[in-house]
Computed example of a mutant assay.
Amino acid sequence: MAGSGAGGGEGVAGGKARFEDIYNRPDPRAYFRRMAPLEYEIPHHAQPAFRRAAAERAALDDGRPQRPAVLDVCCSYGINAALLNHEITLADLYERYTAPARQAMPAQELAARDREFYAARRRPDAMPVFGLDIAAHAVHYAREVGLLDAAFTDDLESGSPGPGLGRALADVGLVTLTGGGSYVTARTFAALLDGVRRPVWVSAFVLRTVSYEPIVEVLAAHGLRTVLDVSRTYPQRLFTEERERQYAIAAVRALGGDPAGREENGRFHSLHYESRPAAL
Rank of each mutant, 00 (worst) to 15 (best):
P26Q: 07
L38K: 09
Q246K: 04
L38T: 14
P214D: 13
F50E: 03
G195N: 14
R143Q: 10
R18E: 11
A101L: 08
L110D: 01
E116G: 05
D258V: 04
T209N: 14
Y247V: 00
G181T: 02
A104T: 07
T185E: 00
A190N: 12
R276H: 10
Q246R: 09
L280T: 10
V218G: 08
A126C: 07
E274S: 12
R29G: 00
G9L: 14
L177Q: 03
Y40D: 04
R52Q: 13
L219S: 06
P163Y: 13
E274R: 11
Q236M: 09
D61Q: 14
Y118A: 01
A186K: 06
L60C: 10
L38F: 03
L219C: 12
V175T: 03
P124K: 09
A260S: 09
A46P: 05
R253F: 05
L192E: 02
L90Q: 10
T233Q: 00
A220C: 11
R253T: 04
G7A: 09
A58D: 13
F50H: 06
Q103T: 08
S76Q: 12
A46C: 10
D61T: 12
R102Q: 07
V202W: 09
R33W: 04
R167D: 11
V230Y: 04
V218F: 07
D149K: 00
R67T: 13
A112C: 02
A30C: 05
P106S: 06
Y94C: 15
A104W: 00
L165Y: 04
A54M: 06
E144H: 08
N265H: 10
K16W: 10
A142S: 07
A82D: 00
Q47H: 09
D114E: 05
S76F: 05
D155M: 12
F19D: 07
E10G: 13
V139D: 04
R245E: 03
R243F: 02
L255F: 02
E95D: 15
H222Y: 15
G7Q: 09
E213Y: 15
V129G: 00
G261Y: 09
T153M: 11
R198C: 10
A279Q: 08
G179N: 01
G195P: 10
C74V: 11
Y234F: 12
R253M: 03
R245Q: 08
L169C: 10
Q47N: 06
A59D: 14
G162T: 03
P65E: 08
D72Y: 01
S160P: 13
E56F: 02
A101G: 08
I215W: 05
Y118W: 11
E95T: 15
A53V: 06
F239P: 01
R121H: 04
P100S: 10
V230F: 02
